[in-house]
């Protein structure tokens, strides 16, 4: 599904290298987790893959089902099936959540040559999916993320994911700012979307999210590279011993 080779990325405005030759392959239908200390480049990876400005790719490639992501605009990547759940979902005053969702869903359908969803079909679908995530009608009516609690914002991200049905989902510290109940709710939303044709890349600091979203593979990232790859037990090792031991071991 996602194949990253030798990816090197620096900040556009500064001479600062962040990703230093990152290799990562996420197979179709699998859930991969990336863990790593602060400043290892995890969020940068998610932004570079989704096409945020401000980064310069100096080497390497990133392919989504064989298509080169790095040359595309963010909206093209999204239409191809890439989705990033933001660590800090953006508030957009003046744009209704419903309008936003429908515009996004129909823009992607249009880009893929599909017919736009009718207002009725869209409404039916969004209501059903919102209900599963305990998102009420009021939250759908309000401007995007404005006045939402931390938990509501993250649930809103998962609702977008559910509506857009991407192939490759990147979750950037989706557990940050969530209490235990909210994390469970979000994890359930993610688990409901797990399927043979859909892959996940779950970026997190902590093992606890991975108790709820069970990964197939766990990677440890440090200083702009993947330094160790293993099964779910690797996450437990981090939880018990911290990153220091692993980093000492690989250096």
């Amino acid at each position: 599904m996602l194949e990253i080779k030798g990816l090197k990325v620096k900040l556009e405005d500064e001479d600062k290298q962040i990703l230093k030759g990152l290799d990562l392959t996420v197979e179709t239908g699998k859930v991969h987790a990336i863990m790593g200390p602060n400043g290892s480049g995890k969020s940068t990876l998610s932004y570079v893959l989704s096409g945020k400005d401000g980064y310069e790719v100096t080497d390497g490639s990133a392919l989504l089902e064989g298509d080169d992501l790095l040359d595309m605009d963010p909206e093209e990547r999204a239409a191809l099936g890439l989705f990033l759940a933001f660590q800090y979902p953006v508030e957009i005053p003046g744009v209704g959540n419903m309008t936003f969702l429908r515009t996004a869903v129909n823009a992607q359908r249009k880009a893929r040559g599909q017919e736009e969803l009718s207002a009725g079909d869209f409404l039916k679908e969004v209501r059903a999916k919102a209900k599963d995530l305990k998102i009420d009608a009021d939250m759908l009516k309000r401007p995007v993320n404005v006045g939402f609690s931390g938990g509501e914002k993250k649930r809103n991200e998962i609702l977008q994911m559910a509506m857009l049905t991407p192939k490759m989902c990147i979750l950037d510290e989706t557990d940050s700012g969530l209490d235990v109940d909210a994390m469970k709710l979000v994890a359930e939303g993610v688990n409901a979307l797990r399927s043979e044709g859909r892959s996940f890349l779950v970026i997190t600091h902590y093992q606890r999210l991975l108790d709820h979203i069970k990964p197939d593979v766990v990677h440890i990232m440090a200083d702009g590279k993947i330094v160790k790859t293993g099964g779910p037990e690797l996450a437990l090792e981090v939880e018990n011993n911290g990153y220091a031991d692993i980093l000492a071991e690989v250096s």
Binding site: G51, P74, F83, F86, V95, F100, A107
Partner: peptide, 26 residues
């Protein structure tokens, strides 16, 4: 930031700009 958020959801650049411009006038 809002522009990138909209584009990351598949909303084309010009549509996203116009949506934000309308929201400015709301």
């Amino acid at each position: 930031t809002a522009l990138f958020y909209l584009r990351s959801r598949g909303v084309p650049m010009n549509v996203a700009r116009n949506l934000l411009t309308l929201s400015f006038m709301a």
